[in-house]
């Protein structure tokens, strides 16, 4: 396993989320009524998330990335180890709502995370749950809808919208909670290229506004847009590095079952030197 670069560099700086030796087991009840271990989805994972950073998490299906994501806001609790969000442990029942209002979450299926039929009512759902006063909710909903460019659709029925639009509503629902961090669990998997682009633009904008973004994705070109990429394999962190470093390392990518970026694939197949990592490098080399 590679030495994780973040741990070295980021420990002195403000850590928003600290994951320490996290283990999450899925259990099932066997024929005799005993609880037995079914799978260890996350196996001894440690990393820290710096405030305001943009991290992507990649890995094959079943590598534990989705399970790990759900532990970041206490939707799943650690079997062992701990997750500290802004100084609070997710295992602390009294602070769980505080944690969830600071770490928002957007899921894969746009349809199955919208609660109310009308767009603006759905966006209001989160703030309503945490007891925000009415006028304040109104303000938050309007600004959240403007942020995702869906203000004109605020009175529309959710079922009339396209997948990409629904996903933007789901993001607005998370923004309206005024979180400091949003975890995106494969938000673009079910969208077409146009919807995917829009969602990625919004994620960038949110990150520029200072919101910490954690993006789980299968699309390498999306993962490459983050400051840092965590690769997961079989419940463990396989690599934790910058996209530039990850995507120029053929062994690392193949080992994790990921996809080579076309440029690097082309470089290797054409027999060009490994020092080339950008199109500009390649042009220089060939000239």
């Amino acid at each position: 396993m590679r030495q994780s670069f973040s741990q070295v560099r980021y420990t002195e700086i403000s850590n928003f989320i600290e994951v320490k030796n996290l283990i999450i087991d899925y259990t099932r009840v066997d024929d005799e009524g005993r609880t037995v271990l079914a799978t260890r989805a996350v196996n001894d994972v440690s990393f820290t998330v710096e405030k305001g950073s943009f991290i992507s998490v990649v890995g094959m299906n079943g590598s534990g990335k989705s399970t790990m994501a759900k532990a970041l806001n206490g939707l799943l609790l650690p079997s062992k180890g701990e997750v500290i969000v802004d100084g609070m442990s997710t295992a602390d029942e009294d602070r769980i709502w505080e944690i969830r209002s600071r770490v928002g979450m957007v899921f894969q299926n746009p349809d199955n995370q919208i609660v109310s039929s009308i767009v603006e009512d759905d966006v209001a759902f989160g703030p309503e749950n945490i007891g925000v006063p009415s006028e304040e909710i109104r303000k938050r909903v309007d600004s959240a809808l403007r942020k995702v460019d869906m203000y004109d659709c605020k009175d529309k029925g959710a079922h009339m919208l396209s997948g990409g639009q629904k996903q933007r509503i789901a993001i607005a629902g998370a923004i309206a909670m005024r979180p400091q961090c949003i975890v995106f669990d494969e938000p673009t998997a079910m969208l077409d290229p146009r919807g995917r682009k829009q969602v990625m633009e919004i994620i960038h904008e949110l990150n520029e506004d200072g919101i910490t973004c954690i993006l789980i994705t299968h699309f390498m070109e999306e993962a490459a847009q983050a400051d840092r990429v965590i690769v997961m394999k079989e419940g463990q962190i396989y690599s934790d590095t910058t996209p530039e470093e990850l995507f120029s390392d053929r062994k690392l990518i193949e080992g994790a079952g990921l996809e080579m970026p076309p440029l690097i694939d082309l470089r290797d197949r054409a027999g060009l030197p490994e020092s080339i990592t950008t199109i500009e490098d390649m042009i220089c080399q060939l000239k």
Binding site: M60, Q108, E186, A189, M190, H218, G257, E259
Partner: peptide, 10 residues
Amino acid sequence: TAGLDPKSHR
């Protein structure tokens, strides 16, 4: 191939 990881995609 919608929604699959790169390996399943291939």
